[in-house]
Computed example of a mutant assay.
Amino acid sequence: MLEDYRSSFSEAYEHVFTTMREKLQLHPTGRPTKSTGSIIEKLHRESIRLTQIQDIAGCRVVGTDVAEQDRVVRSLGSCFPEASIVDRRPNPSHGYRAVHVIVPVSGRRIEIQVRSTLQHLWAEFSERLADELGSELKYGGGDELFRRALTNISTTVADFEGIEAMARDFSRHEIPDDQTLRSKVQSFIQSAATLREQVFKLLNDAIRAVDDAAREVKKR
């Protein structure tokens, strides 16, 4: 029964995936359906019915920054007017931040995750840790030290993306003729770009560190 239900999402998924590529010129990565084990685990964890799960099938789009993320969400909303949008950025789920666009097609719901690059790197880091320390880490369980680390890094990413948005707003406005003010504004914009590189490196280094540790454990 569960396998039949999973299979019933294929046509709806292909419609959404193909539309995103051909009509919107997006480059989604896909996961046609959750594994049977993942579905059963979610049913137990959240005490919901099978038909209430919104991410049986879905795909993901990663934009450079929040501005591009918002543009993608708007284009998806225009292309799929019946879609519902769940913005998890203001109130993240255990540090997870993204925008989910839920598209109903022929009685099936296809979830599109839209993330910024930094949100995606955080999610990848969370997945790597959960693979090594237990999936409960993603849902508020597991080791407290690592839970706090994930939350703190997510907050850092959110704070930076707010700074980046401010810098972007400054760059779009005409800078006053006052030379001192002009210099400070340009310095702020450059500092935001430098900070992005640092946050990006932090997350990539963290992912590599977890991967390296996992390989060392497997060698023992």
Rank of each mutant, 00 (worst) to 15 (best):
E3I: 03
D4Y: 03
R6Q: 14
S7M: 11
E11K: 13
A12P: 05
H15I: 11
V16K: 10
F17R: 10
R21T: 12
P28S: 11
S38P: 00
K42E: 01
H44W: 04
R45F: 01
E46M: 10
E46G: 02
S47G: 10
S47N: 15
L50T: 09
Q54D: 14
Q54S: 12
G58Y: 02
V62H: 03
V66M: 13
A67P: 06
R74G: 04
R74Y: 07
R74Q: 14
L76I: 04
C79P: 09
C79L: 12
P81T: 07
P90K: 08
N91D: 13
H94A: 09
H100M: 00
P104N: 06
V105P: 05
G107E: 00
R109T: 12
I110G: 07
E111A: 00
E111V: 04
I112Y: 07
I112C: 06
Q113R: 05
S116C: 06
L118E: 03
H120S: 14
E127G: 00
R128P: 01
A130F: 07
K138P: 09
G140F: 04
G141I: 07
E144Q: 12
E144F: 08
L145R: 12
F146E: 12
F146I: 13
A149Y: 13
T151Q: 11
T151C: 03
I153H: 02
S154I: 02
T155I: 04
V157I: 15
E164G: 08
A165D: 11
M166H: 14
S171N: 00
R172K: 12
I175V: 14
P176V: 01
Q179L: 15
T180A: 13
R182A: 15
R182G: 15
S183Y: 11
Q186H: 12
S187Y: 07
Q190K: 12
S191I: 02
A193F: 03
F200D: 15
L202H: 09
L202D: 03
L203S: 01
N204S: 08
D205M: 07
I207H: 03
D212S: 06
R215M: 10
R215T: 05
V217M: 08
K218R: 15
K219S: 11
